[in-house]
């Protein structure tokens, strides 16, 4: 008799318990809900498109205007070096990459609070929401990246000294890193905001500060040698430097730093996912 009940218990599809192991995230379940992720991406995109007059033009206008702004302020007024690159290309490359990271981070950081109503009524893997945000932003990135490519082609044909090289092939890895880092920190913050609302105020402000701590408006070569190690600890720094080297051929790539940054990204993502999947089980009681 004991045997039959043992055998029977193995067939349970779901066991609901107060606490499971530290890492109880169920990837196969998220995969089963991939249609939901697709629908959420579609929703966010369609809704954005329907509610604005200019539609996707905004996606182009934003980096374009920021680039002009940076060119005037940092390039022409402050005369900050761009490693000999055309200023427009230098700033735009930084802005487009940074935007993707920043959007992933800020948009996922409010996951629990903005979705409290729906999370309280129906179960699905909560991670589907931030993952869909990262994918939605990837579409935005693609549009902005095309703008960057167009400018790159223009300057290339005009004979500006830009030298794209084989490192371009590393782009998917860099994108993965931006997405993973943004998602990891975003869900980490969203998990903490269920308890500490004041973190939400920190996010936009923090992201802005972080941008100035990252070589977006200046090249790495301007950083004194004794402070270079600090930049090695900023996972965003080597991503942007590598991207500029690959597409524009300026600056330098340090693979050890890139590997370190990749490792840090993975660790942050793992911590984020672990904390997120712990919080998602009880956050409805606290929000």
């Amino acid at each position: 008799m004991n045997l039959t009940s043992e055998q029977r218990s193995e067939q349970w599809a779901t066991v609901i318990q107060p606490h499971t192991g530290w890492f109880n995230f169920n990837f196969s379940e998220l995969w089963r809900y991939r249609d939901l992720v697709a629908m959420l991406v579609r929703r966010d995109f369609v809704v954005f498109y329907k509610q604005t007059i200019l539609g996707p033009t905004w996606f182009l206008l934003q980096p374009l205007l920021t680039t002009i702004m940076f060119t005037v302020v940092f390039g022409n007024i402050a005369h900050i070096s761009t490693n000999g690159l055309p200023q427009i290309l230098f700033y735009m490359s930084g802005i487009v990459l940074w935007n993707y990271f920043a959007m992933c981070l800020t948009n996922t950081s409010s996951t629990f609070i903005t979705n409290a109503a729906i999370f309280g009524k129906v179960y699905f893997p909560r991670l589907a929401v931030p993952v869909s945000v990262v994918i939605t932003n990837l579409i935005t990135f693609a549009i902005q990246f095309c703008l960057f490519l167009a400018f790159m082609l223009y300057f290339y044909l005009r004979g500006a000294g830009i030298r794209p090289n084989m490192l371009i092939l590393i782009l998917p890895l860099l994108l993965f890193q931006l997405a993973a880092l943004g998602l990891g920190i975003g869900i980490l913050i969203s998990s903490l905001t269920t308890k500490y609302r004041d973190l939400t105020y920190l996010v936009t402000f923090g992201v802005q500060l972080w941008m100035y701590a990252t070589p977006v408006v200046y090249p790495m070569s301007l950083i004194p040698r004794k402070w270079q190690w600090v930049y090695a600890l900023n996972p965003m720094a080597s991503v942007i430097e590598t991207f500029r080297y690959a597409f524009l051929g300026a600056g330098a790539v340090q693979f050890s730093r890139l590997a370190l940054s990749f490792g840090m990204t993975i660790v942050i993502l793992l911590i984020g996912v672990i904390l997120f999947s712990r919080i998602e089980r009880t956050f409805m009681d606290t929000v």
Binding site: W12, T14, I16, P18, H19, K121, V122, Y123, M284, D285
Partner: peptide, 20 residues
């Protein structure tokens, strides 16, 4: 039972897909 919130103790076992 629909996994919106976790229990404090004890457990529930469910066979099959649940829609709430």
């Amino acid at each position: 039972l629909s996994r919106i919130t976790a229990p404090s103790s004890g457990k529930a076992k469910i066979k099959g897909r649940v829609a709430s």
